[in-house]
Design a protein around this nucleic acid. Structure first.
Length: 569
DNA sequence: GCCGTTTTCGGCCCGACTGTTTTCAGTCG
């Protein structure tokens, strides 16, 4: 069983406990455990089988550890089954309606016996909701207005789409004279691979002007709420955007607060409390006196902490780094010297070898590997051994026609469903660089998936596993991999791991990339470009590496090719 | 349900906005 599935069980449990009005801190404990488990690289199933003590994980105590064991060993959770018998699934669905939380749902279910979104809608239309104590016409209307959005709620967009929309809004706000500063905050600033909403912060002496400006923006559909400092709008894309307007002296504190994550901020505020201080979005306060707030650096410094890069603010390791005085200098896009995964017209790319090399050179890259598809990917016109050798001969010709950039003869070779390589060892041995990948049969059981990965890792010609899990952000789960086992084998055999920079992949993800780094595996950030603009995605790959806490030294393609070569098996 | 160089019991971040209220509960981030 995957860690995500265990996490999902605890999340369901948390939803049900909320509706049944359990202790909110107990609910939080389940959500926190879910998050811990889902964002751990090591397989909990494997750990249970090995008898590993699970209480070593933050937020997992004796009882939750026992529940994890029950889930792994029996495949079910007895308490969850009991609660599900009491509360129909349709009732849980009601939580997804914006503005509806556990208390309101409890009233719908317990007092009105409503058990689905359809029944709730009918009751609202019949005016039954407004008649309840604590409810009124506006609440009823709001539910009618939002109930059709319930199915959409929770939808996330890629970091690429999120940045584009949020940055457009920021740029527009800055055109106002009254707006002194504006910036993207939230998960988008933390460069999370997908965003569930957008957050924008501005400082201004005239918050109303900023809010009016946002309301009139071409990307904005409607205003959902608006107060003195805070406005929420729905974008035409369906996504919600929060704008917060604060005075200049609070900009840093508001940025810190508004960037999150929620979990990071809970720790920050607790640390402040322990120091006899209070942190909110307006500043750091000792009693009534503001002692910091204009910049984020000041806010963290007031708590005795160094500034923490937004990408690390997930309450994972950043506070350990900070208190140890070892905040990593994260890798930057300017550090990248080579790109080792890209396609040309030989398979499914849109540009020639020289065109790709020229484009890479213009972006300051010093070396590239041309890695077209192998024959299994027939849809992409994948290459067999004969065509591949011809292609490599063309690459060698191209080298003579361009200077200042090295072009390597590579291949993206499929790891077939039967755990053999798509091309034989003889031709692979002639390559400068072999990326092994799985494109097909990602649904196979864990045993077969692992057999395939081991075939590739043990093959002496394979240099790296490309987009290792095959997941697509928000669309498709990756293959069922025992990440710990794969990474250990890769470390033993000198095989590198790719962070595929395409915003739809970003695989390895932050958590697994950190686990790979911890085993000393060199990470390579690759664009998987299919045309000359494909290099644009490099920034997303670098961001994912930064979220993993990777430094320049951890990323192999920050080295020159001469240095890089020494890392090859 | 978790957690502890103050504690094994009693805490568990902090504030904005809305709607239904005459002072606050619910929801959200």
């Amino acid at each position: 069983m995957k860690n995500e599935q265990i996490g999902a069980i605890f999340d369901q449990l948390a939803d049900l406990l909320e509706i049944t009005e359990a202790n909110p801190f107990r609910v939080r404990a389940y959500r926190s455990a879910s998050r811990t488990i889902s964002t751990t690289s090591e397989s909990f199933e494997s750990m249970v089988k090995d008898g590993t003590d699970l209480t070593q994980f933050q937020g997992i105590g004796k009882d939750l550890a026992r529940q994890v064991v029950e889930i792994i060993e029996t495949g079910v959770h007895s308490q969850l089954a009991e609660l599900q018998a009491q509360v129909p699934a349709g009732v849980v669905d009601m939580l997804r309606i914006p503005g509806v939380g556990p208390k309101k749902v409890a009233v719908f279910f317990n007092k009105l016996n409503l058990t689905s979104l359809d029944e709730l809608k009918a009751a609202a239309q019949a005016g039954q909701l407004a008649a309840m104590k604590g409810f009124g016409k506006k609440t009823e209307q709001s539910i009618l207005d939002n109930i059709d959005m319930a199915a959409e709620a929770g939808k996330r967009i890629s970091i690429a789409a999120a940045r584009s929309a949020a940055e457009a809004v920021v740029e527009d706000l800055l055109k106002l004279d009254s707006v002194t500063q504006a910036a993207v905050a939230g998960s988008c600033r933390r460069r999370k691979e997908s965003c569930g909403d957008l957050d924008v912060l501005a400082t201004s002496s005239d918050p109303d002007a900023a809010m009016d400006r946002l309301a009139a923006h071409e990307l904005v559909d409607s205003v959902l709420m608006r107060g003195g400092t805070k406005q929420r709008v729905r974008m035409k894309s369906g996504l919600e955007l929060d704008l917060r307007v604060v005075p200049d002296e609070s900009y840093g504190a508001a940025m810190q607060y508004f960037t999150g994550s929620k979990e990071h901020n809970v720790v920050v505020r607790q640390m402040a409390k322990d120091l006899g201080l209070k942190v909110n979005e307006y500043g750091v306060f000792r009693d009534e006196e503001q002692i910091a707030g204009a910049t984020e650096e000041d806010v963290y410094a007031a708590l005795g902490l160094p500034w923490i890069p937004p990408e690390l603010r997930e309450n994972r390791l950043e506070f350990d780094y900070a208190t140890a005085g070892e905040m990593p200098r994260l890798v930057e896009i300017g550090d990248i010297k080579g790109d080792l995964h890209m396609h040309t017209t030989a398979s499914d790319g849109a540009a020639s070898i020289l065109e790709m090399a020229e484009a890479a050179k213009q972006r300051g890259l010093k070396y590239i590997a041309i890695t077209d598809h192998s024959k299994r990917v027939s849809m992409a016109n994948g290459l067999d051994a004969a065509r591949l050798r011809t292609h490599w001969a063309e690459i060698k010709e191209a080298r003579k026609q361009i200077s200042g950039i090295e072009i390597l003869c590579g291949i993206e070779c499929d790891i077939l469903e039967d755990a053999t390589m798509d091309l034989d060892d003889e031709v692979l041995s002639e390559a400068d660089w072999v990326v092994a990948v799985m494109h097909y049969g990602l649904q196979q059981p864990r045993e077969q998936i692992m057999k395939r990965l081991m075939t590739a890792i043990k093959n002496p010609h394979v240099n790296i596993i490309g987009h290792p899990t095959g997941r697509m952000v928000g669309k498709r789960e990756g293959a069922d991999i025992d990440m710990t086992e794969m990474l250990k084998a890769a470390a033993d055999h000198g095989v590198m791991m790719e962070i595929n920079a395409h915003y739809k992949r970003l695989d390895l993800d932050d958590v697994n990339a950190a686990a790979a780094r911890d085993l000393g595996i060199p990470i390579v950030i690759s664009t998987d470009s299919h045309n000359v603009n494909g290099f644009d995605v490099l920034t997303y790959g670098v961001d994912q590496a930064r979220r993993a806490g990777l430094t320049k030294d951890d990323v192999a393609n920050t080295k020159t090719w001469a240095q890089f070569k020494k890392l090859l098996r």
